[in-house]
């Protein structure tokens, strides 16, 4: 069943049970939940772009301040919550905060759903206690790297997060620990790459994604992601120039922290991290004028 239908059904049930709508459970309090479908633009995950889009305008982030809590949807104070937060709430309400806080680490309590994709035997969604070692997620729950291969790298928090290596497998799945390791837990989307993966190609595809999703509002993101995508294309396809990795790092300097919203900033994090760890692969592409993984490459999720 499509997610929207599922949610609509749940809302109808809640309405029928008197949990939402007029006079909730006889309390005299009115509250309703309206489901609004987005059209898939990545930028509309940015909270102010989401509000602008809800109002019917182009999905573009707004200047902050004012923050949504002061001036949000239709200019009214607005709280913007993730689905993740909303999904956790009923359990905390049902079982109490102590139950929730008893799980996880001192700085990261409770559980989190990790959405694992890529070269593992069992990709899927896994809800784990915060602080669970990454090794457990990939090797126990995910059944290890597919086809008997070994792990090359993984991206712990979604399309923009910095790459991590096998040496980071014992890092715990919580915000602080992953940040300390040099990446971010972000949205909890774990992408796993095996040894046959061309890391340049992964970065190329991710940068192309950001180029495609850039709203075009600000210069660094609009022009920078386009330029970076061009550079990655030529490196991957054997036309790279010796200065290209450094040029990419310099573009990171001119985009990250300079863009209007985090989309542009984040487009530079993965590429810069792979240049840090895998510069030799970039150089191999450039010197050999071809992708060294060609032929053995498998599709990345």
């Amino acid at each position: 069943m499509p997610q929207t239908e599922l949610l609509e059904t749940a809302l109808e049930e809640a309405r029928a049970a008197g949990y939402i709508g007029r006079n909730v459970l006889g309390s005299g309090f009115d509250v309703d939940v309206l489901l609004h479908r987005g059209a898939g633009a990545y930028i509309c995950g940015e909270e102010t772009a989401l509000l602008t889009s809800l109002e019917g305008y182009r999905g573009e982030p707004r200047l902050k301040p004012p923050f949504p809590a002061v001036k949000g949807l239709y200019g009214k104070p607005t709280v913007v919550n993730n689905v993740e937060t909303l999904a956790t709430l009923p359990h905390i309400v049902r079982n109490g905060p102590d139950w929730f806080a008893a799980m996880g680490t001192p700085t990261g309590k409770g559980t989190r759903v990790w959405c694992m994709s890529g070269h593992v035997n069992r990709p899927g969604n896994y809800e784990l206690e915060m602080g669970t070692p990454i090794r457990e997620l990939i090797y126990e729950h995910g059944g290890g790297i597919w086809k008997g291969r070994s792990l090359k790298a993984f991206q712990p928090g979604g399309a923009s997060m910095m790459v991590l290596l096998p040496e980071h497998l014992d890092v715990g799945l919580d915000f602080d620990a992953i940040a300390k390791a040099g990446s971010m837990a972000g949205a909890g989307a774990m992408m796993v790459m095996d040894e046959t993966t061309c890391i340049v190609d992964v970065a190329r595809r991710l940068v192309k994604f950001f180029e495609h999703e850039s709203c075009g509002k600000c210069t660094p993101c609009r022009e920078g992601t386009y330029w970076m995508a061009n550079l990655f294309d030529r490196i991957e396809f054997g036309e790279g120039k010796p200065g290209d990795p450094d040029l990419l790092l310099d573009m990171g300097y001119n985009i990250d922290g300079r863009s209007f919203c985090p989309l542009g900033d984040a487009s530079t994090w993965f590429p810069r991290s792979v240049i840090k760890y895998f510069r030799d692969e970039f150089e191999q592409h450039i010197v050999e004028k071809a992708c060294p993984f060609r032929g053995e490459r498998e599709a990345v999720a």
Binding site: P220, E223, G224, Y226, W227, N254
Partner: peptide, 9 residues
């Protein structure tokens, strides 16, 4: 950098 971006295209 930003002028280089603006002039790139």
């Amino acid at each position: 950098g930003v002028l280089e971006f603006l002039l790139a295209n």
